[in-house]
Design a protein around this nucleic acid. Structure first.
Lengths: 206, 206
DNA sequence: GTCTATAGAATGATAGAC
DNA sequence: GTCTATCATTCTATAGAC
């Protein structure tokens, strides 16, 4: 779809990579090798460009990281904002968040993968981790409310429950591939099934 | 437990770090900053040693990684071997594996954390990832058998179910801390509860 | 001529290894 | 400490489409 010049039909100047294309390749490479293990020379080679040509598109290696993280975080936050704007119970809102998070993970796989592997080695990374921490905290609030409503079992700590649910959700980036045979929407349902009802057979024998 | 000289009571020669202590600090640092982002100079500084002194203990930075990965993998494999040696149903064996995996994760947190973050950037990493893949495959077999027994719901693909369960299990390394207020054994029960019964309230109203 | 993408050469800093 | 290799980055200049 977004391969070359067919997106922004008429572009002036010399043909070649634009910002978007460089970013996509960069994030892919960061995910393959890890951000720190990927040198600008690696990226240049993958693109068939010189290093200096890359610096025409971006001010720094870290800027590439920052843009990708912004994409991932803003989309995840949008899901949560949308859920909180609903006129619904906390349990229903939580369900909306889980479904939405799986959708964002699968749709924005590269940038979210990058986000989930951060170590906090720079100011950019620390800031992203902080936004992620805030996201988690708000979801924990939802879980706690759903427990109070009696819609979620209360014998598991809300913080632990949230971490387990999102551990399951986030782990999807480790194996989901867009070209695979797993449908994102069905995957979201499977996640919800396991999280809410568990893997024991449905109680249809009595 | 394994802090300093109290392990191998009498050690001869010049006082200072031994292999084990250097390894522990190295793995801790690798987890804090990431393996690639951690330089030998970082490690030397943390230990208060010169770089050359470090190379007296280890042949290379990668050797440190290899030893840690061996620890994590052998302990996880031992859990699986133990489960398969049991005279029990697949479902019961799976439960044993999940409980054991959480135990290994919490007991060997640093080395398992390192294992779960590998990217495959070297021969050592590729080999470790391959052993991990084999582990996952064997667990998937257990899940499939448990489904055939009727002890696990069969409307979720065995591969997806396995990945979701272990996504939940493995995510524990992201937040569990030995000095925290979460008991490892209770955590394992919580994981099993969510995986098997889900977070919906127990059906005690009818 | 103007715009965009591109190289080449060289910077200082830091890497792992010994 | 010292080695060589590689790191991210910058400067200056040019190639090609409008």
């Amino acid at each position: 779809m977004t391969t070359s010049a067919d997106t922004a039909a008429a572009r002036r100047g010399r043909p070649g990579y634009d910002r978007r294309q460089v970013l996509d390749v960069a994030v892919t490479l960061f995910n393959e090798q890890g951000y720190d293990a990927t040198s600008v020379a690696d990226l240049a080679e993958r693109l068939g460009l010189s290093k200096s040509a890359l610096y025409h598109h971006f001010a720094s290696k870290e800027e590439l990281l920052a843009i990708a993280l912004e994409t991932a975080l803003s989309r995840l936050e949008a899901v949560l904002d949308g859920a909180l704007a609903l006129d619904a119970s906390a349990a229903d809102r939580l369900e909306h968040v889980i479904r939405g998070a799986v959708a964002v993970l699968t749709a924005e796989l590269p940038s979210v993968t990058l986000l989930l592997r951060l170590r906090g080695n720079s100011a950019v990374e620390v800031a992203a981790l902080e936004r992620r921490r805030l996201f988690d905290q708000r979801v924990t609030g939802l879980v706690r409310s759903a427990q109070s409503e009696g819609r979620l079992r209360a014998d598991i700590d809300a913080g632990v429950a949230t971490r387990l649910i999102f551990g399951m959700v986030n782990s999807v980036v480790e194996w989901y591939r867009p070209d695979g045979r797993v449908d994102p929407a069905l995957l979201a349902e499977d996640v919800l099934t396991v999280a809410l009802s568990g893997l024991l057979p449905r109680d249809d024998h009595g």
